[in-house]
Every structure is written in structure tokens, then in C-alpha cells.
Amino acid sequence: MNEKRILVAFDGSDNALRAVDYVGRVLGAAPGFQVRLLYVERLPERDFFATEAAWKEACETQAAGVRQALARAEAALKAAGLPPDSVGSEYLPSCRSPQNQAPSCSLGTSIARDVVRVMVEGGYGTVVIGRRGVSKAEEFLFGSVSTKVMHLAKDCAVWVVA
């Protein structure tokens, strides 16, 4: 494990932006760190659209928005003092994505499991994740990525930014 390799789970939400901001402020210009933002694609639910074309359009719009958000987050980290070559991002596509051609993809059953898988495969020693602050009942019904990451992660540090 290399604790200076840091994986930031990113979904474009305010919670994720807080996590990015926190990483920027904590690390600043400190040397030797590698920071990678990870977005696990969650497609709009296909069944919410009457036609395939409407769904594909929504997928494309969402993907474009997320890529822009990733670029802004990368820029924010660099502006905080991190060397440009130490910051990167990864867009992990859904296996069901109409655009997916990547060798690795998300099965769509658990974002947390995807985050932990990327962490292990990439040798990251630190995972950073924003937390919404949900009630227990909401967590029961809708799930919580941060809680599940905390349960699943081993041999690493998990920073939860609430």
C-alpha cells in the first residue's frame, strides 16, 4: 500500500466537491503525492425512457457534464498547489453504456465495490470520499457509498469528508 497514492471518489455532487477541496487544502504543494479522481458511471435508468434514442441522448448529456466536472475538479487541485503531473482522473464507464469501449467497466451493482476494486488494482493507499449525511433509514433504503467503502476497504486509509 502506498498512502501517498490517493484515490478520490467523485460523482460531481457537492459532497464530492467538498472532498476535492479538502484534499487540495490538506496536500497543497506537499511533494510526492499522486491524486486520482474516480468517477463510476451510473447511467440514467433505461426504463425511465420510452425510447432507446431518448435514453442514449440522456446518457451522452450526463457523460459530458461529468467529464466537465472532472476537469474542473482536476483544475481545482492544481490550483491548490498540487503539481500538474500528480493529478489525474478516471471515468469508469458502465458496462451497459452505449458508448462503452473501455476494457474495464462497472457492473452497476455497487459504486462502493467499484471504488474499492480500483483502489486495490491501482495500489492506492488512501481513499477519499464525501458523505451526504443520511439517516439510518435512508441508508437502509437507498444505500450509502461512504459507509460501504468503510466496510469493504482494507489495508488503506479512508478519509470521509462530511
Binding site: F48, S110, I111, F140, L141, F142, G143, S144, K148
Partner: peptide, 15 residues
């Protein structure tokens, strides 16, 4: 019925 629960896709069925 279709729902869009990202982290817990089967949570409502389990509930």
C-alpha cells in the same frame, strides 16, 4: 415499477 437507486439497487425489494 422501475426505480433508480444507485448504491443499493435491490434495497427496495429487500425492504
Amino acid at each position: 415499477y422501475a426505480f433508480d437507486f444507485h448504491e443499493n439497487p435491490f434495497g427496495l425489494d429487500l425492504f
